[in-house]
Design a protein around this nucleic acid. Sequence first.
DNA 1: CTTTTTTTGTGATTTGTTTCACATCAATTC
DNA 2: GAATTGATGTGAAACAAATCACAAAAAAAG
Lengths: 227, 227
Amino acid sequence: MKQITKKVIKNSLKRIFLYRACLVKLKLMGVEKVFSYTLANETGVTSDQVRKDFSEFNIKGNKRGGYDINVLLEKMEKIFHRSKDNNIVLIGMGNMGLALSKYSKFAQRNMNIVATFDIDPFKQKLRSGIPVYSMSRLKEIIDRFGVKVAILAVPEISAQEVADELIRYGIMGIVNFAPVLLKVSPDVIINNVNLCDELESVIYYVHKLMKVDGLKNLELLYRDMKY
Amino acid sequence: MKQITKKVIKNSLKRIFLYRACLVKLKLMGVEKVFSYTLANETGVTSDQVRKDFSEFNIKGNKRGGYDINVLLEKMEKIFHRSKDNNIVLIGMGNMGLALSKYSKFAQRNMNIVATFDIDPFKQKLRSGIPVYSMSRLKEIIDRFGVKVAILAVPEISAQEVADELIRYGIMGIVNFAPVLLKVSPDVIINNVNLCDELESVIYYVHKLMKVDGLKNLELLYRDMKY
DNA sequence: CTTTTTTTGTGATTTGTTTCACATCAATTC
DNA sequence: GAATTGATGTGAAACAAATCACAAAAAAAG
Ligand SMILES: NC(=O)c1ccc[n+]([C@@H]2O[C@H](COP(=O)([O-])OP(=O)(O)OC[C@H]3O[C@@H](n4cnc5c(N)ncnc54)[C@H](O)[C@@H]3O)[C@@H](O)[C@H]2O)c1
Ligand SMILES: NC(=O)c1ccc[n+]([C@@H]2O[C@H](COP(=O)([O-])OP(=O)(O)OC[C@H]3O[C@@H](n4cnc5c(N)ncnc54)[C@H](O)[C@@H]3O)[C@@H](O)[C@H]2O)c1
């Protein structure tokens, strides 16, 4: 049987996120220059891997001189398309939606939630500085702000229907917090964030860890479950 | 250079989560029996992969008869250690912590947030049905409920310090919402949930998608960025 | 200015994962 | 009840990712 959809979020891209987190931290500490092994030590990947990843994204350093932290961060900004602003809409202003709408890091990274939407008239008022609209204004706002990416924080039961609507109006990528597998055409990017699964996988590994009594089986140990 | 920490959350385990999500949905629709290709169609992986994954976790079906959905779900419960209850603590009752504390799915899956904690006396009162304690009672509660897993939703600046405290009191696994790389001993499981990164990776792929004009380069297309 | 040291960048090699291919089994058909 | 059909389960083959190993470059030392 042939596979129709495929996993294409590359491990190397995930590690680029990791390197950046690390670089941000180092920069705050006043560091200006890093070597592949600096990043390696901090992140737990090998220095070879760091360089291989950089080479994949065409990031070049200086032979013997390592990498300038600012240049590196700048190149990463480019990779993540953060030179320009990205307008986002958020659907569902319940518990999760409200928390997300108040999260300042998104805006700090040029990802602006320009509007939020909810079906419940009770929630359609200004909270957290971002307007809450009724669903009837969705198309208008998406068009006006040229929005391409949405955050979906509605109950499971409504997730598919709202996703369909978003896609009809031109949304091309969705971060979906509802624990359902959305059925969409393959030219739409869906990123499912399933917090139950995240918690469960920690439990899974903790149980596993407890079974290898005396920590004899070091093969099974690890620090971070993702890159 | 040798790698000290390694990625061990296996793709196969991630896909088991995916299969389960799918099975839950099918069960609700009244389906009782599935074949490897049923799951394959629903999830976008190949039927071979489904069977290989099952074989890794020692899940057996019936030749020609496929798999009984209930048996399958039961075996997965076992894999995720959900026969017994898992007690969880949640640290940081700000925006994110509050939303999480109100999320009923955790309890539905036997993951009980038995207590929440905050440094701010103002937040130390009952909200959302779960008590909010001062940090001074952390050890007591962890001991009393035999808690092994924590959710960390405090500001970045405090994340490391609180993580250290948790680990000192016996916590073995942490779901960390703060966008910082925690430094911990390798026998502690850290699962970083970085929502900025999740959003950014969608933006990354949407931009990529827009560049392959006319959708000619189908190689680049995909439905779900993770398994 | 030559040698040594240090670090990058990348083919070659190894290791890991997915797909293929088919033997095996059990239900169904004839 | 023999033959056919339609599934599983799993080694073998193909593919992908990570590690190794070393040439190339540049800085530092002599
Ligand atoms: N709260 C959490 O911590 C949490 C954690 C993980 C996942 N989730 C998931 O996120 C989603 C939202 O969770 P929540 O806790 O915020 O739920 P919630 O019930 O508090 O909020 C849902 C919001 O969506 C709105 N809504 C419902 N149908 C809608 C529609 N068709 N169009 C627009 N808006 C609609 C509701 O009015 C409500 O305000 C759920 O799918 C949930 O499973 C929540
Ligand atoms: N709000 C979101 O949507 C969101 C999204 C992604 C990530 N995060 C991350 O989650 C964390 C919390 O975010 P938030 O928006 O809820 O922030 P917040 O400021 O609303 O809440 C933080 C809470 O932690 C408490 N706290 C601070 N120091 C503490 C300590 N040492 N011990 C115990 N409690 C302490 C504070 O009193 C506050 O109640 C942050 O690291 C943030 O980056 C938040």
